[in-house]
Amino acid sequence: MKKLKILNLKKAHSLATERSIKLSEDTLDQKERANGFFQEVGDMALFIKQIVKETFSRNFEFKEFLRQCYEIGNKSLPLIIITGTIMGLVLTIQSRPAMAKFGAVTMLPGMVAVSLIREIGPIITALICAGKIGSGMGAELGSMKVTEQIDAMEVSATNPIRYLVVTRVLAATLMLPILVLFADAFGFIGSWIGVNIKGDVSLVLYIFQAFGSITFLDFFPAVIKTFLFGAVIGIVGCYKGFTAGRGTESVGKAANAAVVLSSLLIIIVDMIAVQITDMLS
């Protein structure tokens, strides 16, 4: 009987030890994850600090900045035009039955215009650009890192942050609002097509009705937040590319992480911007 008690005690002891070890391992694992997260946040803050510092340096790479504007702006335009047109068309077709129920079909252009300008235009364009531009930056800089091109730049006494990162971030920040304006404009055209599927409204009348519902307070905050979306895409894309590992696998990972993180941050920035706009208005 005494032996059995001792045996049970030993079993309980070993079970407790096992659980305690597992708990310690889990705690350590969580600590490492938390450390990794805070380290990444810190690294990104330092990266942004370097970008700001190099943006105001004397030797700004203007030629490369213009090239990046062309790459980001001009080459994304067809995709944005198609997306914007379809966005307007679909929004109109989907909203029409609900508006018709309340006899408010004439308000359709105004509703679509406010939706496009305030929210749908900026957020959809930003998410598309996060996929197209952000992944491109992550992959390009990641592959430059893997093939030692960034090291080569540094060794030849050229600042890679100034040449590669500042130009891309500024180009993305400047080009995104322009792309959003294109998306909005073609959204109006898509919406006009949608209205004309079951009605007959001239483009001039449609635009008159649409712009009649828009105020400066609809337009201004939307434009401001698109600058932030552009900056987010540029910074995250470049950061992920710049901090890619050494193998070719890391290029894919950098591109993927750039898209995921910038999309997430765009939505968070949008949420904050909407709250601020709401409070101010």
Binding site: E140, Q149, A152, S156, T158
Partner: peptide
């Protein structure tokens, strides 16, 4: 300044992919 006095030949060559040979040489 000190890096300007050093030439570094990388294992992979590390030529800038997006530039022509002339642009690669002009770069530094």
């Amino acid at each position: 300044k000190i890096r300007e006095k050093i030439g570094f030949l990388f294992q992979s060559g590390a030529l800038y992919d997006s530039m022509t040979v002339k642009q690669n040489l002009e770069f530094p």
